[in-house]
């Protein structure tokens, strides 16, 4: 555990909590892509199956349970409790265009051709693109609430910090995982455009709105 890894995890946790609180406090999920949230729930479910097979640390187990629990709670709020506020018409990204290629790729390129390993690989690949329905929704409506942009920033920051964590681990521990690194780079790159808008607009007190 290094400082990048810890702050990355905390940033990830902050993102998840921000989104849950935003929906809960405003009693609305307007502007939030339910499809992205379903994909994240799928990511955590397929990655953390090792909860049943191996114990790493209390920290590790607790965080996994919190991530999974929050992911399903978010999906529940969007599709059940506050369904009336869900903006399905604007959440029109075709997720099969992500899930099918990612599924194929995880079968083709993995560390070991075993069920748990393929599911872990699937979750890594899927996580890297799971935010696309949300970004698509924002580009379609042309704007995002400020709290939603804080959520996206924390979520992007998390993977960027993990990149530094992997650099650290490579130099000091000799560890590296090519699948995680390549997917992590892809994931971080997808946020770059958003990071630019966040810094130039939101941090200067303006609402994030895209030119028509």
């Amino acid at each position: 555990m290094n400082i990048f890894r810890l702050t990355g995890d905390l940033s990830h946790l902050a993102a998840i909590i921000i989104l849950l609180l935003k929906i809960w406090k405003s009693r609305s999920c307007a502007g939030i892509s339910g499809k992205s949230q379903i994909l994240f729930a799928l990511v955590f479910t397929t990655r953390y199956l090792d909860l049943f097979t191996s114990f790493i640390s209390l920290y590790n187990t607790c965080m996994k349970l919190i991530y999974i629990g929050c992911a399903y709670a978010t999906v529940y709020l969007i599709y059940a409790k506050f369904r009336a506020t869900y903006d399905g018409n604007h959440d029109s990204f075709r997720v099969e265009f992500l899930v099918v290629p990612v599924g194929g790729l995880s079968v083709l390129i993995n560390h070991d051709f075993s069920p748990l390993e393929i599911l872990w690989t699937f979750s890594i690949y899927l996580e890297s693109v799971a935010i696309l329905p949300q970004l698509f929704m924002i580009s379609k409506t042309g704007e995002a609430e400020t709290i939603t942009t804080h959520y996206l920033f924390c979520l992007g920051l998390y993977r960027a910090l993990y990149l530094f964590n992997w650099i650290w681990r490579f130099y000091f521990e000799g560890f590296f995982d090519m699948i995680a690194i390549v997917a992590g780079v892809v994931q971080t790159v997808l946020y770059c455009d958003f990071f630019y808008l966040y810094v130039t607009k939101v941090l200067k007190g303006k609402k994030l709105s895209l030119p028509a």
Binding site: N60, Y67, W166, D177, A180
Partner: peptide
Amino acid sequence: VIGRTRKDEL
């Protein structure tokens, strides 16, 4: 060690 960092990462 290649490809074994994930066991302790989230």
